[in-house]
Design a binder for these strands. Structure first.
Lengths: 279, 279
DNA sequence: GCAAATTTGTTCGTATGTATT
DNA sequence: CAATACATACGAACAAATTTG
């Protein structure tokens, strides 16, 4: 037994999925049927399926069956905003709405949840404030084509509001102009650049339920620190993206226009063929 | 039974790890011991441990036991090379060696493996060549402090060598000056910019063995397309990084010098305490 | 170098619970 | 309520890797 049986079964099923014999959304044979087909016990079949789940190829629905996962058409975010001026454009909100629309997809975002809180050590470090000091945070959920896409929280130093100069930061509503533009007008702080710190990790329980992803999947976590004229951090934005539906682009120097049209050149999508009914 | 038993067991062990009762590198009780402690069957214990493996908190070694994973100190790569000029600096090789040294860590790389091959559809698309056309590829393995860090393959159009102008591309050895500089001298093609395309996926079997990572872990895959004066792609570099030991930075506009010194502000590392003997 | 002991890996069988149709 | 399908849990046996005597 060079390879354990559940590896062989998983590999056989993986082949069927990758060759297209089993299309996205299609139902796999039930565990009982697979048990007969491969002449293995139900537990062994389940071990094989667990492997496929780990690879993100299938998902199980209690009472229904096992299904090939629908690959979500990935959304591409450009991290280097306006490369000509090298200048960070508006806030993330504005950039998000326009970038999504450009790709002919429907953006949506929740109204901000505003909180006064003590940020994590990582955020405090980037904002260059002492651990334990309070900040203003604005949190939003973002959707594309009604699919949960990202969770974003931006942290601002408390002085912005205690000084009375930027009261709108506490308003739990969208700022049409964007918070970055607002801060320039209100306080005179201009964001002259930013740094993105890109990491990957497993999702916490909140993220699991919001994105509907398994506990051992991966999310990107991007810390964006915005700097003002004095090279001082004026805000830190933490955005969490599920890795299965997000990609990123970084442009440096002179590059031609992006080609968003090269979405996954897949094996072939011959027929859309609506395979199953949604609940 | 609100929560299944193996969830509760996993959560209890997770708590011990995160509180520091079980330090990185420490061995967990054996399955038999855990079976007695939690009064569950061995299979249930194993389900709990599988969960912890999925979260990347522990690893099992057949014949030895289960151990808390050693977090590898992540290495940070800056994707925007020289932000002042907005110009892509030398080749990746040069940039890699200097960037790693700056962080006081020891870089190493294999001698390049040169091949003539038909690239994947993704690479062909980015190089703007027809599918099925051959290209020159140069492949390298990179290490930091003797740990496998990345796998990199760069693809160049075949004309570069068939024209006889850039024969060094076929030499299976390091180019001290960097291939980007060499191409400028040899063919007159200057890289005036590049675009990075950042994605995440599960590793293939090669990557699993080289990086020693499980089949359901995550790797970053970054496609870097370099453009010449004519806005034409002159090379495509594909680099694969395990997500557990790599992070990335993108600088836009004016930003202060990076602070590499803010490595994970962990719960506390009170005592190093060498827990176990290496083989 | 070999054999025994230890520990995890694989596979089976069985029973019962929970979600969906 | 019944049937179907996946989820959890137990027990058992043997295999494979590693360490120890």
């Amino acid at each position: 037994m060079a390879q354990p049986m559940y590896h062989l079964i998983a590999d056989d099923l993986r082949g069927q999925i990758e060759r297209g014999d089993l299309r996205p959304g299609a139902q796999l044979p039930t565990e009982l049927e697979l048990r007969e087909k491969y002449e293995a016990s139900r537990n062994t079949i389940r071990d094989a399926i667990k492997r496929l789940i780990g690879l993100g190829l299938v998902e199980t629905r209690p009472g229904q069956g096992t299904f090939v996962t629908q690959k979500i058409d990935p959304f591409v975010t450009t991290l280097t905003g306006d490369q000509k001026s090298g200048r960070a454009s508006g806030g993330e909100g504005i950039a998000y709405l326009s970038e999504v629309s450009e790709q002919h997809r429907k953006p949506a975002e929740s109204t901000p949840r505003v909180e006064i809180q003590v940020p994590s050590a990582e955020v405090a470090l980037r904002l260059r404030i002492s651990p334990g000091v309070q900040v203003v945070s604005r949190h939003q959920q973002r959707f594309i084509d009604d699919i949960p896409w990202s969770l974003q929280t931006t942290y601002y130093p408390m002085e912005f509001v205690t000084s009375g100069k930027a009261p709108m930061l506490l308003m739990a509503e969208d700022m049409a102009e964007g918070t970055v533009q607002y801060l320039k007008k209100a306080i005179g702080l201009e964001q002259v650049g930013y740094r993105d710190w890109i990491t990957a990790r497993t999702p916490d329980s909140n993220e699991q339920t919001f994105f509907r992803i398994p506990h051992d999947s991966t999310v990107f976590e991007i810390f964006r620190t915005g700097f003002d004229q004095n090279e001082t951090p004026m805000r830190v934005t933490v955005t969490v993206f599920p890795a299965d539906r997000n990609q990123f682009i970084v442009n440096v120097g002179n590059v031609p226009d992006p080609q968003y049209d090269l979405s996954q050149s897949e094996p072939e999508t011959t027929e859309p063929e609506t395979t199953e009914a949604e609940k």
